[in-house]
């Protein structure tokens, strides 16, 4: 099966810190597909369903987040993750 890819610019004020990391991981875990996250188009990749690894990326504001997914719901997973990051993790101002 081929991997689908997506990327999104993260504008969240504090970057991929605690609360955004928890939201991203919880969302990723809702999908059956294997989902990886990276800070460059070529990786290195980490498991987007691992809260410890996602939080350890410490991606700062204005990073581009790259996702790749493989599985039956890969497209839906990437759409949802991009929407979460693009929507500023649904946090208020």
């Amino acid at each position: 099966m081929n991997k689908l890819k997506a990327s999104v610019l993260m504008r969240h004020e504090v970057g991929l810190h605690a609360r955004p990391s928890v939201k991203l991981t919880k969302l990723a875990k809702g999908f059956e597909s294997k989902i990886d996250l990276g800070l460059s188009p070529d990786g290195p990749w980490i498991d987007a369903k691992s809260i410890v690894k996602v939080m350890a990326t410490r991606a700062p504001k204005d990073s581009t987040i790259y996702f790749r997914a493989e599985g039956s719901d890969a497209k839906a997973a990437l759409d949802a993750l991009v929407m979460l990051v693009d929507g500023d993790f649904q946090d208020g101002p």
Binding site: A18, V22, T25, K26, K29, G30, K49, S50, I51, V52, M55
Partner: peptide
């Protein structure tokens, strides 16, 4: 506690929850 709860929220087993907390 935050890591374990994040894992638990996905319906993970007790062993998986413990493993996630202990990754730290």
């Amino acid at each position: 506690a935050v890591m374990a709860a994040t894992e638990a929220a996905s319906g993970a087993t007790l062993e998986a929850v413990r493993r996630t907390a202990e990754e730290l």
